[in-house]
Design a protein around this nucleic acid. Sequence first.
DNA 1: ATACATTGTTGACACTGGCTACTTTGCTAT
DNA 2: ATAGCAAAGTAGCCAGTGTCAACAATGTAT
Lengths: 205, 205
Amino acid sequence: MQDTPNRPYHHGDLRRAIIETALEMLRAEANWQFTLREVARRAGVSHAAPYKHFPDKAALLAELAMIGFDRLREALMKAKPEASRSLLEEITPIARAYVAFGTDNPALYRLMFSAEEGRAVGMHLNERALAVFEVVLEMLGSGQAAGNIRKRPIRGQAAAVWSLIHGMTMLAIDGLLVPEKVGSAPLDAALSTLVEGLEIPQPNT
Amino acid sequence: MQDTPNRPYHHGDLRRAIIETALEMLRAEANWQFTLREVARRAGVSHAAPYKHFPDKAALLAELAMIGFDRLREALMKAKPEASRSLLEEITPIARAYVAFGTDNPALYRLMFSAEEGRAVGMHLNERALAVFEVVLEMLGSGQAAGNIRKRPIRGQAAAVWSLIHGMTMLAIDGLLVPEKVGSAPLDAALSTLVEGLEIPQPNT
DNA sequence: ATACATTGTTGACACTGGCTACTTTGCTAT
DNA sequence: ATAGCAAAGTAGCCAGTGTCAACAATGTAT
C-alpha cells in the first residue's frame, strides 16, 4: 500500500496493479493498441513481470474485458432509479450511464466487444455480456407487467434498446454524434423516439 | 486481369489492384490487423511497391474507409424501394442491406468508424459518413411530409435510426445478436419497435 | 539457520512491420 | 537508337513485441 520508494522485489499485489494500470490506459487513450510491455512499463515493473501472473497476453485481455462488463453492470444498477413515473424517466439515466461508461473507457469498451480469437473467450464473455443484457430485460418485463409497455416479444424490444444504446455509445466514442459539446441532446432525442415505440400510445399524442 | 505468371515489372494498375486486394482481405477476415506488407504479398508485388502509390499506411487506410462509405451508400440506395405503403416496408430493406454490408465487410466497417489519428482524417470521413446519414434524413423528411411520421425534430429521429442500425451491425459483426443462424429475426423485431416510435400511432394498436 | 517456492529482473531470440535508399526494368518521346 | 522517367524490385534499417530462460531477492516453513 505505502509507496516506499525502493521496492524492487515483491511488489505486493502486482496482479491487481497490472490490471488497474491497464484499465487506466484503456480509459485514457481512445485508440490504444494494447501491449504488455507498455503496461509493465507504466506499472513500474520489468517487461517480463506480468508473466508471473498471467499466462499470456490474451489471458490479461480476457480478464480486463470481463471486469469491464462487471463495471458496466454496476454503473447501470447504480444509475437505475428506484421509483419512476414513466418509462422515459426510468430508461434515461440508465442509458446516459451506459454511454458515459463507453466514452469514459473507450478502448475498454471496444475491447469488451471484440470477438477475439476463437470462440472460447467469446463464450465466456457472453455470460458477462448477458448479465448486462438482463438489466434491459428486467426493465422491460416489469414495464410490461405494469402495463406501460406494449405487449410485444420482449427479446425483440430488448434488441432494439440494446442496439440503440450500443450504437450511440460506439458513435460517441468515434466522435460522430454526441461530440461532447452537444451534450446529451442527441441521446435524449433518440431515447424519446425509442420510448415512444415501446410505450403504449396515449390518446394525447 | 489474366495472371501471366511472369509480370515482375509494370503491373499496369497496381494502385487499383492494391485497393481491391485490401478490400478483399477486409471482407474475408473479421479481425484482421492491417499490414501493408501482407497486402503487397497478396497482391503479388514486393513489400515496398505500395509506397509508389500511397505516401504511407494511413493514406491507404483513409482511402479504403472512404470507398467503404461510398459502397455502403450505394448499397442502401439500391435497396431502397421505389414505392412503399408503410414506413416499415420502406425501412426494412434498407436496414437489412446496411447490416448485411457490415457483416459482409466486418473489418472494413470497423475501419470506417475508427477515429484514427488526429482529426483531419476524421473530418474527411465525416463528409462521406454524412452522405450515408442523409439517406436516413431524406427518408424521414419525406415520411413527415407525407404525414406518416410524427412531427419531431428530424435530427433526433435520425439519430435513433442510425444508432439502432449501427448498433445492430456492430453487435452482429461481433457475434452477439443475430448470430447468422437466427437470420434477421432480431433485426426485424427491433425495427418494428423503432418504427412504432416513429410512426403516428394508429387507433387500432 | 537452511531449504524452498514465489516473484521479480535481465537478457536474449525470433519475428514483424513501417519505411527508406538504391538498383533494375521497360515504356515513351525524341 | 537512345535518353529519360515512372514504376517495380532488392536490401536493409530500426523500432517494437511476445515470449522464454536463467538469475536474484524475498518471504516462509522446517
